[in-house]
Amino acid sequence: MLSEEAEKFLTEFRIEMMAHGKDDEAIDDMEAELEDHLIQAEKDGKSVKDITGGSVKEYIKNISGEMPAANNIKKYITLFIVYLAGILTVPTLISGTFEWTLSNLLYYAAIIVLGPFALYAGFKKILVNYANFKTEKLDIKGYAVSFIFSFLFMGVLVGSLFLVRRYPLVTFFEPASNVNITIGFILLAVLVIGSLLMKQWFYAVLAFLLAAPEIIAKIFADGGPESENYIIISSVALFAAVIIIFSILIISSKRDAQKK
């Protein structure tokens, strides 16, 4: 029976190995080997620190010679950043409301660069402290902390967007609405086709569903993006899109669980 300290170390070890782009099979093998070492060490009266040094990152550095070759994770991170930038800008481009200002561009750059690191650090902390090592499921406190963290994260995004719109700093240029819309549709096509070519159908569907509310509002609403009719139609469509996205995720997770 592992101590709570050992279980947390193994959970963090798995997360760090996944972040390094290791294959699931390699992670399972190395995690099982480390678990055996920790079980034996605790039987011998030794601590986790005696075996690992206490730091997951330092431990991984020490065993780097034994680690199998990593996947090309840098390529996937770069593609993810490009994709993230796309799905953030496509809806506002299609609506014709995208603002080409310094503060707006800095806002999106901050989300692309800092967002993934903030999410990774936050959810890593939650998993290490509130997830069961064997079942990899969160306890009640974990779900509560996840909700609070997600709420605060979204609050920062929304609050920052309000500040960005209030203080544009420098306006580079103001293209006509139809120019923004054309750019939006071209970028959407690139995202969808690129995802399909890489056999990432979920990301293709995600990009389309997030842009769909603006497309639907453009077709059926009377008035521009600021009109009440447009806002209602796009909001309802966005709500429906979110439900579809979550439904796909739930169905996919259940299928993966059945396969395992």
Rank of each mutant, 00 (worst) to 15 (best):
G65L: 15
A144H: 04
D50A: 15
K218G: 05
K43Y: 08
L238K: 06
L34K: 04
G45E: 05
A211W: 00
V48F: 07
I81N: 03
M1P: 14
I219A: 04
L105T: 10
L34T: 11
G122D: 10
L161A: 02
A32P: 00
L106E: 08
F9D: 09
S253Y: 04
I232D: 02
K57R: 15
Y108M: 13
A32S: 10
S146T: 06
I181H: 09
K260M: 09
I140W: 05
E99S: 13
I193V: 15
M17N: 08
K125W: 11
D28F: 00
E5F: 03
A121C: 06
E58N: 15
K46C: 10
Y143G: 15
I126N: 12
V179Y: 04
T78G: 14
I15N: 10
A217H: 06
S227L: 03
I245H: 02
T92A: 06
E42V: 07
A237T: 04
D139C: 03
I148M: 06
P116I: 12
A6D: 09
V164A: 00
L191N: 02
K74V: 12
K61W: 08
L102W: 08
N229E: 08
V82F: 14
N178R: 11
G159R: 01
F13A: 00
A221T: 01
T182V: 05
A189W: 01
A240M: 08
L88E: 10
N71I: 08
G96E: 10
L238R: 11
I215R: 03
I193K: 03
A207L: 00
S235T: 06
D256P: 05
I251P: 07
G115D: 11
V236T: 07
I77Q: 13
F185M: 04
M154G: 01
K199C: 00
I216N: 01
F220I: 03
P168G: 01
N62T: 12
N62Q: 12
F202I: 00
L238Q: 09
T89I: 14
I27Y: 04
D50F: 10
A121G: 05
A204F: 02
I63E: 09
L163E: 12
A110I: 09
L206A: 03
I248P: 08
Y76W: 14
E214P: 06
E25F: 01
K61N: 15
F149E: 03
I81W: 04
A110S: 13
D24T: 09
K218E: 11
T171L: 03
D23S: 12
E7F: 01
L119H: 14
K259D: 06
S160N: 03
V205L: 12
E66R: 15
L2F: 09
I111R: 12
S195F: 00
S235L: 04
M30T: 05
Y59D: 09
H37Q: 13
W201Q: 14
A41K: 04
I193P: 06
L188V: 00
K141G: 04
A109T: 11
S160A: 01
L38G: 05
K49I: 14
